[in-house]
Structure formats: C-alpha cells, structure tokens
C-alpha cells in the first residue's frame, strides 16, 4: 500500500462503503446458518447424565472414569485443543483419601490425564482449602497427582481472590478464586458426603470452596448461597465421586465406620441432575434437599431424569 499519496475524499467514502457492506454480509451469513452449527455439537446439546458403576472386585477407578467419559461422547467433546482447564476437586480437609472427606485422588488423576490427552494447554487443580493448603495437598494425595501428571496445583493465596460480581439472589459481589474463572473449561469433581446443615455436600456445594472472604457467613442462608455460586461458576461438567461416600459426621468425617463403598461415578452437564442422582445414593429424595429445589427453580437444571439422556456403564 502506498502510504505517501494522500487519500482523497472519494476514496475514503468508497472504502468505508466496502467495509460496511462486508460487515453486513457477514452478519447475514451467520444468521442464515442452521442454529445447530452456531451452538454446540453432540450430546451437550441437551442434558445428559452418565452413571458408572464398578461391579468387579478390584476394578480400576481410572478405567471407570474413562468409560464414563466415553459414554458421554468422549472428552474431546468438552475439552478443545489449547484449552486452559480448571479442575475443582474437594480437597479441603487434611484427611487421608480412605476417609472419604476428600475427592478420590485416582479419580482426580484420571480426569487430569484425560484433559491432557484431549490437548489441554494447561490443567489446573484449584481448591480454597479449609485446613492448611500444604497439608491438604500432601495428605489428600492431590500433591502427588499434580507432581506426577504435571498439572498445576494452585496455592490458594489471598492475592488470587478477587471481588467479582456474582449477581445472585443472596450474593451480589464476593471475592472469588480467580484461577477458576480465568479458565476456558471448568470441571467440578466433588466427593459425595454428609453435611450437617445442607444435609449433603455434593457438586453445587463444592463452589463454597472456590471463594474467599469470610465464607463462613454463607451458612446463614446456605441453600441460596450454594445456588448463587453454582450459577456463577457454571461448570462444563460435574463428575461426582461416589466411589466412597461419607454417611455421618460430615463434612470432615474421620473414621472408617462413616465411610460406605458405593463404587459409583456420576457425570453430567446438568449440576442439579448430578446432585439429585447422588442424593439417591444416600437414600434421600432430591426434592427434600433445599439447594436442589432452589437450583431447579433458578433454572440451573432438573432432577426429572426423564428429561435427560441417561446412560449407565459398568466394569
């Protein structure tokens, strides 16, 4: 392009018209495309719920995770090459994995590896722990998973908490753990366990571990706080770890007697449905749990499983 001759008035108008015309044309083109192309492809199109059950004695948890993701259409459907993936396990308590207070490290490892195989640029493991984070990382096994897979285990520093607009019913603004919101994809891997106020802590409640601030005041209206946060974080997928569940003395547990072996994994893109299915494992009706009812009311999902594509796999 010749930069030395001045551009005339006529030339300018002509160029502006070309530009305007092409923008108009591009808009028309996009609008006329079939809507399925403009939105997502595959099973995420609608809600789905996959249940994986380990029936054989000594089955591999890793294999079960892989089978569950395959049944949902494969990890490639959810994670694109070059994505930054944030994984939110529940590793808040410095308890060994067998006590079912924290997400099973084998599940965590399998999901990290799946994301890496799908070509994720970076996989982060993020949780704002309750006990000292270094001790939690060591004792729950998350530290070892991070070291062996090369995933980034983010230390919950207070400098990483940033006040953000939640826009919920109860919570308007709240300090949020930024590495979670600054990721392209978000996978929630909670453990299913007992809780004395919300009755159970499942997928949606796991988001209380993704915020900072004086988060213990959230308990004063726990169900609405859970739903507000779940709406804000809105994960790509929820994988509930119910390999072992804690049935009493939650959420910290501490004894083998409180742990029940269920050998179940629940994967869904509907956070309400995943929680509802997991509630059944405890013999509780989904509609009896406040946060599940509220989650449905605020349009987060459904606990009417007939509206979803249901699949079961077992090994």
């Amino acid at each position: 392009m010749d930069l030395y001759t001045p551009v005339g008035r006529r030339e300018t108008i002509k160029k502006l018209l070309y530009m305007g015309g092409s923008i108009l044309f591009a808009n028309l083109l996009v609008d006329s495309l079939p809507s399925s192309l403009a939105t997502k492809l595959g099973p995420e199109n609608s809600g789905f719920i996959v249940e994986g059950i380990g029936k054989q004695k000594g089955y591999s948890v890793t294999q079960l995770v892989r089978r569950v993701f395959d049944a949902a259409g494969g990890i490639d459907h959810f994670i694109s090459r070059g994505d930054v993936v944030a994984i939110k396990p529940n590793i808040s308590w410095a308890r060994s994995p067998g006590l079912a207070a924290t997400t099973n490290p084998e599940v965590l490892r399998a999901v990290v590896e799946l994301c890496q195989e799908a070509g994720a640029k970076k996989v982060r493991i993020v949780d704002h722990t309750i006990h000292d984070a270094r001790r939690c990382f060591a004792i729950t096994g998350a530290g070892r998973v991070a070291r062996e897979t090369g995933a980034e285990l983010v230390f919950p520093r207070s400098s990483l908490m940033r006040k953000m607009k939640i826009g919920g019913v109860r919570l308007d603004t709240w300090p949020v753990f930024t590495p979670i919101v600054e990721a392209d994809k978000l996978i929630n891997i909670p453990i299913a366990k007992h809780h004395s106020l919300s009755k159970l802590t499942l997928g949606m409640k796991n988001w209380i571990g993704a915020v900072g601030g004086s988060r213990w005041v959230l308990h004063q209206d726990i169900n609405q706080s859970i739903v507000d946060l779940a709406r804000f974080f809105n994960p790509t997928l929820t994988l509930i770890d119910a390999i072992r569940i804690m049935t009493r003395n939650g959420p910290s547990g501490g004894k083998k007697e409180y742990v029940a072996k269920k050998d179940v994994l629940i994967l869904s893109n509907d956070p309400v449905a995943a929680d509802a299915r997991a509630a059944l494992l405890f013999g509780k009706r989904p509609a009896d749990l406040g946060f599940i009812r509220l989650g449905k009311r605020w349009g987060l999902g459904t606990f009417d499983f007939r509206q979803l594509q249901q699949k079961k796999v077992h090994i």
Binding site: P97, G98, F137, A138, I139, G141, G143, R147
Partner: peptide, 16 residues
C-alpha cells in the same frame, strides 16, 4: 512445613 511433600496416597488410606 515442607512445601513439596508428596505422600503415597495408595498406602496412606488408613492412618494419618
């Protein structure tokens, strides 16, 4: 508290 401690989680399933 050591920063890089990696316990073998498959063997610490019972005791702390």
């Amino acid at each position: 508290l050591p920063q890089k401690i990696f316990l073998e989680y498959s063997v610490v399933f019972t005791s702390e």
